[in-house]
């Protein structure tokens, strides 16, 4: 049974269709990357999965159980097993690094504070930020903020992690430190959904690559298939352009 299954999903912003006939399934521990030109609906797909944009039709199944996005309780349950990291980090600006990581487990989940704190420090150490626990987000570089955001997501022990263009707002030097963090996670068997424009990274870590354009899944397959031998003209065109650069 796939851990996450998307069947014939459709979504729009007002009258503008942004996703159509999306079918995807993700096995536990798989790393699925969404690639494609800007505006193709990659980020929107993650927003729909997270319940930030209600789908118009279609089914999302998590561990075989379909999720009704109109039902608040079901969305809450879904959000306790899926976490998202945003392109713009979206750290809470009024809290320190440590508070950002601890607030949800302690105040929302009610987990015991001592254990959460130990956990948070362990996570922040892992992403290389043990020395900035008391810093506020705007005292950190973009790469550091993004690593805090990843730690914040992991503190909830999610089953699935969604990464929405997490390196798009970073300069090239900082990209590496964030990608290293994700690479490490990838080796630990957490299921990940990655939207990224870092093609060599995508090729390296993904178990499956999905090429999207104009709100549709155009082609999906192994990284080798998509990058070396794409079947669809649209995908071939996109990959060709990237590889030329």
């Amino acid at each position: 049974m796939p851990q996450l299954e998307i069947v014939d999903l459709k979504a729009s912003y007002g009258s503008q269709k942004v996703l159509e006939h999306i079918n995807l399934s993700v096995e536990k521990g798989e790393i699925v990357s969404l690639i494609g030109p800007s505006g193709s609906g990659k980020s929107t797909l993650l927003r729909v999965l997270m319940g930030l944009l209600p789908p118009e039709q279609g089914t999302v199944r998590l561990d075989g159980k379909s999720v009704n996005y109109a039902n608040k309780a079901e969305v809450r349950e879904l959000r306790s097993s899926i976490a998202i990291v945003f392109q713009q980090y979206n750290l809470f600006q009024n809290m320190t690094v440590l508070e950002n990581v601890m607030i949800t487990p302690t105040r929302i989940k009610g987990w015991p504070k001592a254990q959460v704190e130990a956990d948070a420090i362990r996570l922040l150490t892992r992403v290389g930020l043990a020395h900035r626990l008391k810093a506020y987000p705007d005292e950190l570089s973009g790469g550091q903020q993004q690593r805090v955001a990843i730690a914040r997501a992991l503190a909830l022990k999610p089953e699935v992690l969604l990464l929405d263009e997490v390196t798009a707002a970073l300069d090239p030097e900082l990209v590496t430190e964030v990608l290293d963090t994700i690479r490490e996670l990838a080796s630990e068997g957490i299921t990940m959904f990655i939207v990224s424009h870092e093609m060599s990274f995508v090729r390296e870590v993904s178990s499956k690559v999905v090429f999207m354009a104009d709100g549709l899944v155009v082609e999906s397959g192994s990284p080798q298939q998509i990058f070396d031998n794409p079947q669809e003209p649209r995908a071939r065109d996109f990959v060709g352009k990237i590889l030329r650069h």
């Binding site: 959000r79 976490a83 998202i84 979206n90 929302i108």
Partner: peptide, 25 residues
């Protein structure tokens, strides 16, 4: 708006978002 969204995806309720994130800022 992204502060609301972050809180929302972390399962903060409306009032919890206000209290912990929005009002302090």
């Amino acid at each position: 708006k992204n502060q609301w969204e972050a809180a929302q995806t972390l399962n903060f309720s409306y009032l919890e978002s206000l209290r912990h994130v929005i009002v302090p800022q």
